[in-house]
Design a binder for these strands. Structure first.
Lengths: 211, 211
DNA sequence: CAAATTTAATCAAACGATTGATTAAACTAC
DNA sequence: GTAGTTTAATCAATCGTTTGATTAAATTTG
């Protein structure tokens, strides 16, 4: 029964992640989540203690999937700073687009000042990625690959912000780009490679600027 | 009495804007808003029909303040495309930072798929700014000021996204920049000029790229 | 001008619906 | 049988909204 229990918990987490992503924390009622998951409402509290506990459980499951993703790139000493940054961008675009609903959820809830505990958890998740990017860019500045006056902090805001903008406001982005950014075909075959090319070129031209 | 009525409506809108910005649409109850505004709860419905109507009223008041801000720049024919873009960035950073709470609210709610009518309204607001930026950049590409292959759509995502990232996730941005981005002093005397310099340099180096 | 009437503004109270949470009983498996 | 699950029923609290009554100002009427 232990195995089934884990399965059921995981199933609830799957559904909760989806519903939370679509409707936000407040908009996703426990009744709806339990209904979608075909479990009794009381099961949510039985397994996760509370709605907030369920929300955090959704997050903690994701962290473990994310954490190791970028870290091993930075340890490869055969790569130049620029190569590393390129690899980071590739991985980042791929991963993030594949989890866009969840990313949206993260960005939405972290911008609210309620639910202090939730907020802290999310900030921690986001920081792990931020710091990985920062490390490789700072290294590039230090070894002279990138120009000395480069504003690393704002560069990172650009990398994450550009992506977030498309993910978080797809209606606006769709109107702007003339195509539906939620269309899986367009996203995969056109937007993803286009984003990679653009972000590399953008960063390269900036970071290569003469002093 | 007509004057007082307008004053009171405006006062409600002021309070509603603040409470919505802090707590989000769902988090801001009509009871709290009316309490903060020191008016009877029923007045909200009397004046604005519904909570949704109140929310939209808050927005529409903002549109009228924003709309004309950028438009006259583009009509000045003595300015080069690059000059215009620089002016846009200056105005944009100034304006947006001054309304960061409201901007946060906008970005949070537009990323939700509930409240269809609200969503449409917000999208329309955001598009007016987006299109102004797009116009001046497209003009620059057409007259040869910017390089032909420039990805205008993603450039705009960068401009708005970089700003949004700092505004929407201040906890993360603060940790990244090593200073509190919500500190009014740092924001005004350091971050704002820094953002302007950075974004101009970033865009200039990208848009000036050789074919 | 003054009385009569209409309109707009405001209020306390209550509405039905929904929220997250809890309970005690029923069921399941070893 | 007993420990672990699952269920339906129910809880108090809060939500956005509506109501009917009251007040004051504006308008109409004689």
């Amino acid at each position: 029964m232990e195995k089934e229990k884990t399965d059921k918990k995981d199933h609830i987490l799957d559904v909760a992640e989806k519903v939370f992503s679509e409707l936000g924390y407040d908009g996703a009622s426990t009744r709806l989540i339990s209904g979608e998951a075909n479990v009794n409402m009381a099961m949510l509290n039985y397994y996760f203690g509370s709605k907030e506990g369920l929300f955090i459980a959704v997050f903690e499951r994701k962290i473990n999937l994310f954490r190791t993703l970028l870290q091993n790139i930075n340890e490869d000493e055969s790569l130049s700073s620029w190569n590393k940054l390129e690899l980071y961008i590739d991985k980042y675009v791929d991963r993030v687009v594949a989890n866009s609903c969840f990313q949206k959820l993260v960005n939405r809830e972290v911008s609210l000042s309620r639910h202090a505990e939730i907020n802290e958890k999310i900030t921690d998740i986001l920081m792990t990625n931020v710091l990985e990017f920062k490390k490789v860019m700072q290294e590039g500045v230090d070894n002279g690959s990138f120009f000395e006056g480069a504003d690393i902090g704002l560069c990172i805001a650009t990398i994450f912000g550009t992506k977030n903008y498309i993910i978080n406001t797809p209606q606006v982005a769709s109107r702007m780009l003339g195509k539906d950014v939620l269309d899986e075909n367009f996203l995969e075959s056109e937007l993803k490679p286009r984003m990679k090319i653009y972000m590399k070129k953008l960063l390269k031209s900036y970071l290569a600027t003469e002093k």
